[in-house]
Amino acid sequence: MLAAKEHLVVTEQQVKEDAVYVIEDRGVIRGFYYFRSIGCEAELKWLFVNPEWIGLGLGKLLWEHLLETVKKAGISRFRIVSDPNAEAFYRKLGAKRIGWEPSSADSNLRLPLLEFTLDNSDAS
């Protein structure tokens, strides 16, 4: 995680231009997601839950909010370049692995490339 720290930054400009949502508790960020859509390309860049709060439903809460945001924007499909440890979470929610992407933090690591397609029952 420390090696990837510089890659885990969401800039002020990205917050202004894209969908960034945070769950905060008494001034401490417990989780967030960052979603970006340019033209017909859409990608969940980050969905992160503070490790102390994993297993308490925050990831699912962020995911449900993300689906509402995506649906309102008229997007029906998006990509996820997943941390290998998070792939099972995304697949449980319906994402499908479609390939692999090289890691920007570690040239020896390949990351699962997933795709999620909304259907009529998502985010409703």
Rank of each mutant, 00 (worst) to 15 (best):
E43P: 06
Y90Q: 00
D83N: 08
S104V: 12
E43F: 01
K5V: 15
R77C: 11
A4E: 10
W46P: 03
F116I: 04
R110V: 08
R110C: 11
V49S: 04
F89R: 02
N85F: 13
H7R: 14
L109S: 11
S82I: 01
E64N: 08
A4N: 06
K71Q: 09
Q13I: 10
I98A: 08
L8Y: 08
E24C: 06
N50H: 15
Q13W: 11
R30I: 09
A3S: 13
P84M: 12
R36M: 11
K5A: 14
E52G: 06
H65F: 01
L66E: 00
G31T: 01
R30E: 11
V10W: 04
A95N: 00
A86M: 01
K16R: 14
D119W: 06
T69H: 07
L109T: 07
L118I: 02
M1P: 15
I80P: 00
T117W: 05
Y90G: 05
E87D: 06
K71M: 06
A88W: 10
L2V: 09
D18K: 02
G57D: 02
H7P: 09
L118H: 03
L61V: 09
K60E: 07
S76P: 13
L118T: 05
L109Q: 13
W100S: 12
D25Q: 12
A88G: 10
A4W: 11
L114P: 00
K92R: 12
L44T: 00
A95C: 05
L61F: 03
A19M: 08
H7N: 14
F32A: 05
S76G: 13
F89E: 02
W100N: 13
I75V: 03
A88H: 10
C40T: 15
E64R: 11
F35Q: 04
A42H: 06
V49K: 01
R26N: 15
D119N: 12
L8E: 09
G39Y: 04
E12P: 01
A123F: 03
R30D: 12
G27W: 01
L93Y: 04
F89N: 03
V70Y: 02
L2T: 11
S107F: 14
G31K: 02
W46F: 14
